[in-house]
Design a protein around this nucleic acid. Structure first.
Lengths: 123, 123
DNA sequence: TGTTAAATTTAGAATTATTCTAAATCAAAT
DNA sequence: ATTTGATTTAGAATAATTCTAAATTTAACA
């Protein structure tokens, strides 16, 4: 693992936001680290492939990167906000229904977040 | 609903594949329908917004479009193949865990499909 | 230490799915 | 027939990501 990849992993693990590649790039720039977008992407690929960070594809928006500790996501259909939610691990019960071995699963629950639903009531 | 949107909805409902916008476009072309990609995208947006078809974002690949009848998906991590699977509807039990109203959810189970796992054994 | 080789990083071009734009066509209603 | 509005269109624009080939850094060891 390169020094850059390690720094990026640390940023992701220290953040409670779900950062995009670009946000990670600018955070490093702020810390006056000399790095390019290509290296950010290279490092993120390496980290994902090795199960050290989790990529969260965002349907129309830039991918976000997340810590690996198992949890699920709530996505606001209005503003796109991504929120963590900890439901119990369903791997075992899903495996009963699926013949091939399950590697992981991704559960995204679609909702309207509090802010957006206030906004809607206002209009 | 325009005639084009209706044709596109019918194609999606008649297909057991998960078609991309481009595949839909070429299928219409084959049936000698005069249509452009822009219209395919316009129609698909309309159909999605009105809950008549379901968009399945594909992490790195073109979005696929699917019938709306509730079901879940199995995705091969190796080749990207998308397969249908019918698990019971979890909305009610998820709703107990989530404060805001759940609009829908998207469950993607990641696996290595039979072909790919044969392939792997061969190598 | 100096030299070579390998790994990593880089800038910028390329790619690709999708959206946007503004004109053209079509449909419908008076 | 004429105007109005909706729909469709070609092609340009966008934006995230990947690719490429050169440059730089690191490591190995003569």
């Amino acid at each position: 693992m390169t020094k850059n990849a390690e720094m990026i992993m640390n940023i992701i693990n220290a953040s409670y936001d779900h950062l995009t590649a670009e946000q990670i790039y600018f955070q490093l720039k702020n810390e006056t680290v000399k790095i390019s977008m290509a290296t950010v992407y290279n490092s993120l690929s390496y980290l994902c492939e090795n199960g050290l960070v989790r990529k969260v594809p965002m349907d129309g928006f830039a991918d976000r990167y997340d810590r690996v500790k198992r949890h699920d996501h709530l996505v606001c259909k209005r503003c796109g906000k991504l929120m963590d939610i900890s439901l119990r691990d369903m791997t075992a019960s899903l495996q009963k229904e699926v013949k091939v071995p399950i590697l992981s699963y991704d559960l995204k629950i679609s909702c309207i977040c509090d802010e957006c639903s206030k906004e809607e009531r206002r209009n």
